[in-house]
Protein backbone atom coordinates (compact mmCIF):
# COMPACT_ATOMS: atom_id res chain seq x y z
CA UNK A 1 0.00 0.00 0.00
CA UNK A 2 1.32 3.37 -0.84
CA UNK A 3 1.19 6.57 1.15
CA UNK A 4 -1.89 7.98 -0.53
CA UNK A 5 -4.14 5.15 0.56
CA UNK A 6 -3.11 5.54 4.17
CA UNK A 7 -3.79 9.24 4.08
CA UNK A 8 -7.22 8.83 2.48
CA UNK A 9 -8.36 6.29 5.00
CA UNK A 10 -10.29 3.08 4.44
CA UNK A 11 -13.95 3.45 3.54
CA UNK A 12 -14.86 -0.16 3.10
CA UNK A 13 -13.06 -3.16 4.42
CA UNK A 14 -13.66 -6.88 3.92
CA UNK A 15 -12.15 -9.32 6.37
CA UNK A 16 -12.42 -12.99 5.52
CA UNK A 17 -15.61 -12.13 3.70
CA UNK A 18 -17.44 -14.89 1.82
CA UNK A 19 -20.70 -15.09 -0.09
CA UNK A 20 -22.56 -18.35 -0.69
CA UNK A 21 -25.27 -19.29 -3.13
CA UNK A 22 -26.65 -22.25 -1.26
CA UNK A 23 -23.57 -24.41 -0.77
CA UNK A 24 -21.60 -22.80 -3.60
CA UNK A 25 -19.07 -20.29 -2.33
CA UNK A 26 -18.99 -17.56 -4.97
CA UNK A 27 -16.71 -15.23 -3.00
CA UNK A 28 -14.14 -16.94 -0.78
CA UNK A 29 -12.69 -15.28 2.33
CA UNK A 30 -11.76 -12.04 0.66
CA UNK A 31 -9.68 -9.41 2.42
CA UNK A 32 -9.77 -6.02 0.77
CA UNK A 33 -9.68 -2.36 1.78
CA UNK A 34 -11.38 0.14 -0.47
CA UNK A 35 -9.87 3.55 0.09
CA UNK A 36 -12.01 6.59 0.61
CA UNK A 37 -12.58 8.95 -2.32
CA UNK A 38 -10.72 6.83 -4.83
CA UNK A 39 -11.81 4.65 -7.70
CA UNK A 40 -11.34 0.94 -7.20
CA UNK A 41 -11.67 -1.34 -10.19
CA UNK A 42 -12.62 -4.99 -9.88
CA UNK A 43 -11.52 -7.21 -12.74
CA UNK A 44 -11.46 -10.90 -13.41
CA UNK A 45 -12.82 -13.55 -15.73
CA UNK A 46 -16.53 -14.18 -16.11
CA UNK A 47 -18.13 -15.98 -13.18
CA UNK A 48 -15.34 -15.18 -10.74
CA UNK A 49 -17.67 -13.44 -8.29
CA UNK A 50 -17.15 -9.75 -9.12
CA UNK A 51 -20.85 -8.93 -9.28
CA UNK A 52 -21.55 -11.07 -6.26
CA UNK A 53 -18.99 -9.17 -4.24
CA UNK A 54 -20.24 -5.80 -5.43
CA UNK A 55 -23.86 -6.67 -4.71
CA UNK A 56 -22.86 -7.88 -1.27
CA UNK A 57 -21.72 -4.38 -0.39
CA UNK A 58 -25.22 -2.86 -0.62
CA UNK A 59 -26.88 -6.14 0.31
CA UNK A 60 -28.66 -6.52 -3.01
CA UNK A 61 -27.97 -10.23 -2.61
CA UNK A 62 -30.59 -10.27 0.14
CA UNK A 63 -33.14 -10.44 -2.67
CA UNK A 64 -31.76 -13.75 -3.89
CA UNK A 65 -33.17 -16.69 -1.97
CA UNK A 66 -30.48 -18.97 -0.59
CA UNK A 67 -27.74 -16.36 -0.75
CA UNK A 68 -25.89 -15.59 2.46
CA UNK A 69 -22.71 -13.89 3.55
CA UNK A 70 -20.08 -14.81 6.12
CA UNK A 71 -17.11 -13.00 7.60
CA UNK A 72 -16.91 -9.27 8.08
CA UNK A 73 -17.64 -6.42 5.73
CA UNK A 74 -17.06 -3.09 7.42
CA UNK A 75 -18.46 0.12 6.03
CA UNK A 76 -17.15 3.11 7.98
CA UNK A 77 -16.16 0.63 10.67
CA UNK A 78 -19.69 -0.82 10.96
CA UNK A 79 -20.52 -4.36 9.86
CA UNK A 80 -22.82 -4.24 6.88
CA UNK A 81 -24.37 -7.56 7.89
CA UNK A 82 -24.76 -6.60 11.53
CA UNK A 83 -28.14 -7.36 13.08
CA UNK A 84 -28.98 -3.70 13.68
CA UNK A 85 -28.35 -2.60 10.11
CA UNK A 86 -31.38 -1.65 8.04
CA UNK A 87 -30.62 -2.64 4.45
CA UNK A 88 -32.77 0.20 3.10
CA UNK A 89 -30.83 2.77 5.11
CA UNK A 90 -27.55 1.18 4.04
CA UNK A 91 -28.52 1.34 0.38
CA UNK A 92 -29.13 5.05 0.75
CA UNK A 93 -25.48 5.46 1.59
CA UNK A 94 -24.28 2.99 -1.01
CA UNK A 95 -25.52 3.88 -4.48
CA UNK A 96 -25.50 1.42 -7.36
CA UNK A 97 -25.46 1.63 -11.14
CA UNK A 98 -26.33 -1.58 -12.94
CA UNK A 99 -24.90 -3.18 -16.03
CA UNK A 100 -28.06 -2.63 -18.05
CA UNK A 101 -29.53 0.86 -17.76
CA UNK A 102 -32.75 0.43 -15.80
CA UNK A 103 -34.62 3.72 -15.65
CA UNK A 104 -38.13 3.41 -14.23
CA UNK A 105 -41.01 3.81 -16.67
CA UNK A 106 -41.61 7.31 -15.34
CA UNK A 107 -40.58 10.77 -16.43
CA UNK A 108 -36.93 11.81 -16.33
CA UNK A 109 -37.72 14.15 -13.46
CA UNK A 110 -39.53 11.47 -11.46
CA UNK A 111 -36.66 9.06 -12.01
CA UNK A 112 -34.13 11.41 -10.48
CA UNK A 113 -36.53 12.58 -7.77
CA UNK A 114 -37.39 9.01 -6.82
CA UNK A 115 -34.71 8.62 -4.17
CA UNK A 116 -35.09 12.03 -2.50
CA UNK A 117 -38.87 11.63 -2.43
CA UNK A 118 -38.39 8.29 -0.74
CA UNK A 119 -36.30 9.61 2.07
CA UNK A 120 -37.16 13.15 2.96
CA UNK A 121 -40.11 15.39 2.54
CA UNK A 122 -38.47 18.07 0.51
CA UNK A 123 -40.22 21.04 -0.94
CA UNK A 124 -40.81 21.39 -4.64
CA UNK A 125 -38.03 23.96 -4.99
CA UNK A 126 -35.48 21.87 -3.14
CA UNK A 127 -36.41 18.85 -5.19
CA UNK A 128 -36.00 20.81 -8.42
CA UNK A 129 -32.56 21.86 -7.23
CA UNK A 130 -31.54 18.31 -6.36
CA UNK A 131 -32.76 17.01 -9.72
CA UNK A 132 -30.87 19.68 -11.60
CA UNK A 133 -27.70 19.21 -9.58
CA UNK A 134 -27.76 15.44 -10.03
CA UNK A 135 -28.37 15.69 -13.75
CA UNK A 136 -25.58 18.25 -14.07
CA UNK A 137 -23.24 15.94 -12.17
CA UNK A 138 -24.20 13.09 -14.46
CA UNK A 139 -23.56 15.37 -17.48
CA UNK A 140 -27.09 14.86 -18.72
CA UNK A 141 -28.66 18.19 -17.82
CA UNK A 142 -28.03 19.95 -21.11
CA UNK A 143 -29.53 17.13 -23.11
CA UNK A 144 -32.74 16.75 -21.13
CA UNK A 145 -33.42 20.07 -19.46
CA UNK A 146 -36.18 20.89 -21.95
CA UNK A 147 -37.92 17.56 -21.63
CA UNK A 148 -37.73 16.65 -17.99
CA UNK A 149 -41.26 15.35 -18.07
CA UNK A 150 -40.72 13.05 -21.00
CA UNK A 151 -40.76 9.33 -20.26
CA UNK A 152 -37.27 8.09 -19.42
CA UNK A 153 -37.70 4.97 -21.54
CA UNK A 154 -37.38 7.23 -24.58
CA UNK A 155 -33.73 7.99 -23.83
CA UNK A 156 -30.83 6.38 -25.67
CA UNK A 157 -28.78 3.70 -23.90
CA UNK A 158 -25.98 6.07 -22.93
CA UNK A 159 -28.37 8.75 -21.78
CA UNK A 160 -30.35 6.19 -19.81
CA UNK A 161 -27.19 5.02 -18.06
CA UNK A 162 -26.27 8.58 -17.15
CA UNK A 163 -29.83 9.03 -15.88
CA UNK A 164 -29.33 6.00 -13.65
CA UNK A 165 -26.13 7.58 -12.42
CA UNK A 166 -27.98 10.84 -11.72
CA UNK A 167 -30.69 8.86 -9.95
CA UNK A 168 -28.08 7.26 -7.72
CA UNK A 169 -26.31 10.59 -7.07
CA UNK A 170 -29.58 12.27 -6.09
CA UNK A 171 -29.71 10.33 -2.82
CA UNK A 172 -26.22 11.68 -2.02
CA UNK A 173 -24.55 8.34 -1.37
CA UNK A 174 -21.08 7.94 0.07
CA UNK A 175 -20.06 5.00 -2.08
CA UNK A 176 -21.00 4.39 -5.67
CA UNK A 177 -21.02 0.82 -6.96
CA UNK A 178 -20.97 0.28 -10.71
CA UNK A 179 -21.35 -3.15 -12.25
CA UNK A 180 -20.03 -3.02 -15.79
CA UNK A 181 -21.75 0.32 -16.33
CA UNK A 182 -20.56 0.66 -19.91
CA UNK A 183 -20.88 -2.85 -21.25
CA UNK A 184 -24.17 -2.03 -22.96
CA UNK A 185 -22.91 1.22 -24.45
CA UNK A 186 -21.08 2.30 -27.60
CA UNK A 187 -17.52 3.73 -27.38
CA UNK A 188 -18.69 7.34 -27.35
CA UNK A 189 -21.18 6.83 -24.54
CA UNK A 190 -18.55 4.77 -22.74
CA UNK A 191 -16.10 7.65 -22.95
CA UNK A 192 -18.67 9.99 -21.41
CA UNK A 193 -19.27 7.68 -18.47
CA UNK A 194 -15.54 7.26 -17.94
CA UNK A 195 -15.11 11.01 -18.01
CA UNK A 196 -17.81 11.26 -15.39
CA UNK A 197 -16.15 8.71 -13.16
CA UNK A 198 -12.98 10.74 -13.27
CA UNK A 199 -14.94 13.88 -12.41
CA UNK A 200 -16.72 12.19 -9.50
CA UNK A 201 -13.46 10.86 -8.12
CA UNK A 202 -12.65 12.49 -4.80
CA UNK A 203 -16.26 13.28 -4.02
CA UNK A 204 -17.38 9.67 -3.87
CA UNK A 205 -15.73 6.37 -3.15
CA UNK A 206 -16.27 4.39 -6.31
CA UNK A 207 -16.07 0.67 -6.95
CA UNK A 208 -16.40 -0.37 -10.57
CA UNK A 209 -16.56 -3.83 -12.08
CA UNK A 210 -15.26 -3.98 -15.62
CA UNK A 211 -14.17 -6.44 -18.27
CA UNK A 212 -12.34 -3.73 -20.10
CA UNK A 213 -8.74 -3.62 -18.95
CA UNK A 214 -8.08 -0.26 -20.61
CA UNK A 215 -11.05 1.15 -18.78
CA UNK A 216 -9.73 -0.09 -15.46
CA UNK A 217 -6.33 1.40 -16.27
CA UNK A 218 -7.87 4.71 -17.37
CA UNK A 219 -10.25 5.44 -14.52
CA UNK A 220 -9.11 3.60 -11.41
CA UNK A 221 -6.59 4.20 -8.67
CA UNK A 222 -6.74 0.68 -7.25
CA UNK A 223 -7.46 -2.58 -8.98
CA UNK A 224 -8.59 -5.87 -7.49
CA UNK A 225 -8.18 -9.03 -9.50
CA UNK A 226 -10.62 -11.83 -8.69
CA UNK A 227 -10.23 -15.39 -9.83
CA UNK A 228 -12.71 -18.15 -9.03
CA UNK A 229 -14.03 -16.33 -5.99
CA UNK A 230 -10.63 -15.51 -4.57
CA UNK A 231 -8.98 -12.14 -4.45
CA UNK A 232 -5.72 -12.86 -6.20
CA UNK A 233 -4.13 -9.45 -6.18
CA UNK A 234 -5.04 -5.98 -4.99
CA UNK A 235 -2.77 -3.06 -5.66
CA UNK A 236 -2.41 0.38 -7.15
CA UNK A 237 -3.70 0.17 -10.71
CA UNK A 238 -0.43 1.20 -12.26
CA UNK A 239 1.54 -1.39 -10.31
CA UNK A 240 -0.95 -4.16 -11.03
CA UNK A 241 -0.94 -3.54 -14.75
CA UNK A 242 2.79 -3.00 -15.15
CA UNK A 243 4.36 -5.21 -12.53
CA UNK A 244 1.84 -7.83 -11.38
CA UNK A 245 3.07 -9.98 -8.54
CA UNK A 246 1.01 -13.04 -9.41
CA UNK A 247 1.32 -15.21 -12.47
CA UNK A 248 -2.49 -15.51 -12.78
CA UNK A 249 -2.83 -11.74 -12.87
CA UNK A 250 -0.24 -11.44 -15.55
CA UNK A 251 -1.88 -14.12 -17.66
CA UNK A 252 -5.24 -12.41 -17.33
CA UNK A 253 -4.12 -8.88 -18.13
CA UNK A 254 -2.05 -10.00 -21.05
CA UNK A 255 -5.08 -11.79 -22.43
CA UNK A 256 -3.87 -15.34 -22.07
CA UNK A 257 -7.17 -16.40 -20.53
CA UNK A 258 -10.52 -15.00 -19.42
Amino acid sequence: MNEEAKREGVHLEARGFSVFYGAHEAVCKVDVSVPCGLVTAIIGPSGCGKSTFLRAINRMNDLIPGCRAAGELLFDGQNVYGPEVDAAVLRRRVGMVFQKPNPFPKSIYDNVAYGPRLHDRCKRGELDAIVEESLVNAALWDEVKDRLHMNALGLSGGQAQRLCLARALAVKPEILLMDEPTSALDPKATARIEELIVQLRGRYTIAIVTHNMQQAARVSDRTAFFYEGNLVEFDATETLFTRPREKQTEDYITGRFG
Binding site: N58, M60, L63, A88, V89, L90, R91, R92, G95, M96, F98, K100, N102, P103, F104, P105, Y114, G115, L118, H119, C164, R167, A168, V171
Partner: peptide
Protein backbone atom coordinates in the same frame (compact mmCIF):
# COMPACT_ATOMS: atom_id res chain seq x y z
CA UNK B 1 -38.65 -6.52 -15.16
CA UNK B 2 -36.53 -7.42 -12.14
CA UNK B 3 -34.34 -4.49 -13.02
CA UNK B 4 -37.06 -2.03 -11.98
CA UNK B 5 -37.35 -3.68 -8.62
CA UNK B 6 -33.59 -3.80 -8.11
CA UNK B 7 -33.28 -0.18 -9.15
CA UNK B 8 -35.81 0.90 -6.54
CA UNK B 9 -34.31 -1.28 -3.82
CA UNK B 10 -30.83 -0.02 -4.59
CA UNK B 11 -32.06 3.53 -3.96
CA UNK B 12 -33.13 2.52 -0.48
CA UNK B 13 -36.81 1.83 -1.09
CA UNK B 14 -38.35 -0.73 1.23
CA UNK B 15 -40.39 -3.57 -0.12
CA UNK B 16 -43.69 -1.77 0.32
CA UNK B 17 -42.47 1.40 -1.37
CA UNK B 18 -41.01 -0.61 -4.21
CA UNK B 19 -44.33 -2.33 -4.78
CA UNK B 20 -46.36 0.84 -4.50
CA UNK B 21 -44.18 3.16 -6.56
Amino acid sequence: PRAFKEGAMALGAGRFRTVAT
